[in-house]
Design a protein around this nucleic acid. Structure first.
Lengths: 216, 216, 216, 216
DNA sequence: TATGAATGAGAGTTCATTCAT
DNA sequence: AATGAATGAACTCTCATTCAT
């Protein structure tokens, strides 16, 4: 029984991801449930409201990014590890359009705590290793990795079906910017907390697409 | 009366920009009209449907970007001209959040022909001047300017209210990438037509939020 | 000035008839006014509301039927006069579809008094002449002429574009029914007043399509 | 639940018939749903749009007419069978005003195929029996039965509440017209297909009141 | 527990009518 | 007197959410 419930939850999240990708985030729950081969009612047994389903998708996306970051940590060469992280995320983004939208809007910072911390930890390590090895500039910070990968994501997002690999054109430039001797940064970086705040703020915008917060 | 009508059209577009910025693109026409101090019916006298109002906002945004590009052309120094263009666009984006969303979705390529051509023309000139002066790498293309500015826009978009000037941190890196001797590009650039296509395709995604094309 | 006003009134009624015929009675006043080459405001100078414009069309239709009846009276032969009346009305109906709808809904018995009386008078005379000449059965009444012509109108109405002359198939039968020795009538006839009442009642149904009676 | 759903479907059709009868076909779905004691949403669960609800009413009306025709076939005497058919339909029409409007506009010839065929079959049989027995003229055709009953319906339609039985006055005349030796027909009859076409064309007029076809 | 029917608020859109010019 | 812009109530339809089965 428990197994079935868990299975249905997965089915719903997967269906949601697919339907959101093709129909946009304003797809109806009816359609998602049907796509999952379940009734709407079942969706409401697993998620308090549409918003929570979206959040679960975001969670899943975040999980995959964390995985990519942790995999990168297993790469011996510190510089290749960083490159691998970028490529991994971008490839994910290219295949599941809208990931960025969903990823950024991770919807409930309070509930996503742990994976986020794991992400920050992984990125910090990735960066520190590079800096220790002298292949990454000293003034780079973990949040820079976040913003730089985001920048490339937005290229993919717009280039879309026409040229889903467009990010590859700008990747060397971005990586080059991380090297020691790269152009001076034009301002200070965001701390991990600030970045979390920024994302949380940005999420509000996206959340409006799903409106209706918890009651009470 | 004509004057009042024109005034109301402006009022509506302004209201739409503001409401879209704060409530997202799925804000209702009722709300926009109210914000403009007008009745819904009036909105429909001026715009065939919601989609057309969004398109008008996009048009306006595009116009402003074109202006910025043309202003940049009047700057003597070719390199400063390019930097000025980047700064101008980013500053605009920072002040009117959501510009990117609306700008990219300029909604009817067929109807926006002329401004877009003016934009491409201006960017091409900007680039050519830089290349002739030897301050811009030879293999850069107009579409690169577009994507690079977009990348910085996305930073602003996410950093939002927390750090609306975050783009400044990455601007030097991006500009550095345009210099001769910058890191090799990782793939070919998009031609102006391809970029237009990509944007047009991307727009479809956004258009789903507004759907309902002209009838007949 | 007076001339212009009268001219515009005619223009509007004509436009209304045409637009109602092609677009149905739910056509908008805007469209009718545009078709007449005038502004909506002008329509409201001439007609208190949409309902009154419809009523004016009905009035005009009634006038034309009265004319047909009075023309028939000028035909020497009493039987041919009656046949001529039927043919005249049906031909009118065939060419301007929807006449029946508009005609029946003559909308304000109080205001249409005179033409209706002229119609009843003409029909009574038509009938009496036939009865006096012995070519029409004695128990026929003026309202019978009305219903019989209506029956044929409904055939035209449905046969529509496919076979606008379908009424001709059943005309002999109907006329035969008016002859002395025709099949016995199955019930009593309506008096002129009753028929007026029936039409007035029926009109209410049609009026609902135009709703909104005078205020107060 | 299935039972409840079916019940609600019936409730909606019944409510629609009643509301259409009293308020006209342009009654709002809100009103119909309320009359049925249901929410609008429920109406839309059962019928894709207003048009389909009207079509369902038409379907029901057609079904009842088919029943009447098939009942008539069970009457021994061929002539009385025909008279019974006329009386049955007219009585139905008298009690549910607007039947004619809704009946004629049976809205989707493709989907109503079977009942229509059953009707044509029944009418053909009715007629053939009469002709074989020598009580119906040889040149009468099934479509004649349709038009003749329609003619009487229009009388009822107009006479309305004032004299709902007015059709009885003209029934003998009409039946007499079907007898051998009745007045010559004034033109050819419509074939079953042509009549279907005429009705389908007429329906377009009515459909305008309901517009908006299925999407895609 | 799963289902899908029911609900109703809310969105986009139209149009009779009013009124400033 | 004529115009057409402005208004807002009303209509059709959608969809997140609830609830009977």
């Amino acid at each position: 029984m428990r197994k079935d419930a868990a299975r249905n939850r997965e089915l719903l999240i997967d269906a949601a991801r697919e339907v959101f990708a093709s129909r946009g985030i304003e797809a109806s729950l009816d359609e998602i449930a049907k796509h999952a081969g379940l009734g709407v009612g079942t969706a409401y047994r697993h998620f308090y409201n549409k918003h929570e389903l979206v959040a679960a998708c975001a969670q899943q996306a975040l999980d995959r990014v964390v995985e990519i970051a942790e995999q990168a940590l297993r790469v011996e060469d510190p510089w290749q590890a960083i490159g691998g992280f970028f490529e991994g995320v971008l490839r994910l983004q290219a295949e599941s359009r809208g990931l960025r939208e969903v990823f950024l809007g991770d919807y409930d910072p309070d509930e996503v705590g742990q994976p986020r911390e794991r992400l920050v930890a992984a990125l910090s390590l990735l960066l520190a290793r590079g800096q220790r090895a002298g292949v990454v500039r000293e003034d780079a910070e973990p949040s820079d990795l976040g913003f730089l990968v985001l920048m490339l994501c937005s290229v993919t997002d717009v280039a879309g079906t026409i040229a889903p690999d467009m990010w590859q054109r700008y990747l060397p430039m971005v990586l080059d910017g991380l090297r020691p001797g790269g152009a001076d940064f034009g301002g200070r970086a965001l701390s991990a907390e600030e970045m979390a705040d920024a994302i949380a703020a940005h999420k509000k915008e996206l959340i409006r697409a799903t409106h209706i917060p918890r009651p009470e």
